[in-house]
C-alpha cells in the first residue's frame, strides 16, 4: 500500500542522504513545532508592532539561552527545507550522477545557510 507518506519515503532514493532523509525530515518537522512557535511568539507576537527594533534584536540574541535555541531552529528549518527540495527534485528522475551532484549542492547550501545565520548572530551580538 502506498500512502502520501510513502511517496516521500526513501524507497526511491539513491544515496545515503536519501535513506535517512525522510526520518530526519520527520524529526526536524517535529522539532520545528516548538522551535518555530517559540521564534514566532518571542520575535513577533510578544513585541509591539510585531517586529523587534535593532536594540531589541541585540538584547534578545545576547541572551545565552536564546541564541543556541535560534541556531538549533536555523539548523532544523534549513535541513527540513532542503530535504523537501531534494524530494521534489528527485521526483524529476535524475540520473545517479546528477542525484549525487544534487546532494552535494544541497549539503553545501545547507552548511552555508547555517554558517551565515551563525555568523550574523555573532556579528549582531558582538556589536552590542
Amino acid at each position: 500500500m502506498q500512502t502520501t507518506a510513502t511517496i516521500n519515503a526513501p524507497a526511491r532514493t539513491r544515496s545515503a542522504l536519501g535513506s535517512l532523509g525522510w526520518i530526519w525530515q520527520v524529526i526536524t518537522g517535529a522539532a520545528l513545532v516548538p522551535l518555530a512557535g517559540l521564534h514566532m511568539i518571542a520575535q513577533h507576537f510578544m513585541v509591539e508592532g510585531g517586529l523587534r527594533g535593532f536594540d531589541q534584536v541585540q538584547a534578545y540574541l545576547s541572551n545565552p539561552i536564546v541564541w543556541p535555541i535560534e541556531l538549533l531552529f536555523l539548523a532544523s528549518v534549513v535541513s527540513h527545507a532542503l530535504l523537501g527540495v531534494r524530494a521534489v527534485l528527485v521526483d524529476l528522475g535524475p540520473s545517479p550522477r546528477v542525484a549525487r551532484l544534487l546532494d552535494t549542492v544541497l549539503v553545501i547550501v545547507g552548511i552555508a545557510s547555517v554558517a551565515y545565520g551563525a555568523w550574523l548572530t555573532y556579528a549582531i551580538v558582538s556589536a552590542a
Partner: peptide, 17 residues
C-alpha cells in the same frame, strides 16, 4: 504545511492510514 506534514508523518509510521 505543518498540519499536513503531521498527517504524513503519522501515516509514514503506519498510524491512522
Amino acid at each position: 504545511h505543518g498540519l499536513n506534514g503531521f498527517r504524513v508523518a503519522l501515516n509514514g509510521f503506519g498510524l491512522g492510514v
